[in-house]
């Protein structure tokens, strides 16, 4: 029954990737920018949750919500200050700016609090539930539940609300959306807010699950979440979810087979295979350059 345990681990890891990947895919879908700073918003979310729990001694859920709200604000600030002027710039300029913002966040955090890691406080009871003879930690189940709830909420926002409709319209054709009276700037900010809130949630969940956080923790999960988004088809919300979960499972399998040092390579191999074989991803659409 070892493999069920591994499956649960894979799904937990995959849920975290999926939550981060959603922000990447939404932002890419709407302004065609790989927001490299997104992984660092995830890191900030983890630290906000950490300070909220350890300093104010509040519970998991209040900390989660505080982290999501603050990350949403941070996301909007990043967009307004750095990315907004770049809408008509070249893709390379936009990508380099995103890398710059990412480095700035990381090293500002290190500047103020040092690079040392922090141990996440135990906010959740360490119990486990026996399902089919396998002990599954309650934290894993909670992570999965929170992820599912957030994803349902996201689907609701994107498909049933006015702002969701505006987001879909802007991602299809920003100019046409503007002509139809949609406030494109606010819609893009809203996209950053929602994506960053999800990254913040992922940060707190990561902290609770893996118990160790540090200022550069966002880099690798950020990259991998981006890979998950590409795998699922960038711009596609279901794609980000499926991509995130698949990547989590693959990494867990690679580790379980005794190749844990190669785990990080697995993600990049997947990335390169998907880019070469089917760059539009599982759920993506093919695009063609106009000549």
């Amino acid at each position: 029954m070892e493999w069920i345990q591994q499956l649960v681990n894979g799904i937990s890891l995959g849920s975290i990737y999926a939550l981060i990947a959603l922000g990447y895919t939404m932002v890419y879908g709407i302004i065609k920018l790989i927001n490299f700073a997104h992984g660092d918003v995830f890191m900030l979310g983890a630290f906000i949750g950490f300070y909220a729990i350890s300093r104010w001694e509040i519970g998991f859920f209040p900390a989660l919500i505080i982290s999501m709200v603050l990350c949403a604000i941070i996301g909007v600030i990043i967009e307004r200050v750095a990315y907004k002027r770049l809408r008509s710039a070249t893709r390379i300029a936009a990508l380099i700016t995103a890398i710059g913002v990412s480095l700035l966040i990381e090293y500002t955090v290190i500047f103020f609090r040092g690079a040392s890691p922090e141990a996440y406080p135990e906010v959740l009871p360490k119990s486990s539930i026996n399902i089919l003879g396998v002990n599954i930690s309650s934290i894993s189940i909670l992570i999965l539940a929170v992820t599912i709830v957030l994803m349902i909420l996201l689907q609701f926002i994107v498909h049933k609300t006015k702002i969701g409709k505006a987001m879909r319209a802007v991602s299809l054709d920003a100019d046409a959306a503007r002509l139809m009276g949609i406030n494109v700037d606010n819609t893009i900010s809203a996209t950053f807010a929602i994506g960053s809130a999800l990254a913040g949630a992922a940060g707190v969940i990561f902290g609770v699950y893996y118990t160790r956080i540090e200022p550069l923790m966002g880099v690798l999960p950020g990259l991998k979440a981006f890979i998950a988004a590409v795998f699922g088809g960038i711009g596609s919300i279901p794609g980000a979810m499926v991509g995130g979960l698949s990547l989590g499972l693959v990494e867990t399998v690679v580790s379980a087979l005794g190749f844990s040092l190669w785990r990080d390579a697995a993600a990049f191999v997947i990335l390169i295979l998907i880019l070469i074989l089917k760059p539009s991803g599982i759920f993506g659409k093919n695009t063609r350059e106009k000549v």
């Binding site: 390379i92 590409v230 190669w262 390579a265 990049f268 191999v269 990335l271 390169i272 880019l275």
Partner: peptide, 21 residues
């Protein structure tokens, strides 16, 4: 054969693979 962002991320991926090797 990839372009723009996709090429960037693929080269980054290869560099990481080289490092991990």
């Amino acid at each position: 054969r990839l372009k723009g962002d996709y090429l960037a991320i693929a080269t980054l991926g290869f560099a990481e693979i080289i490092r991990i090797i």
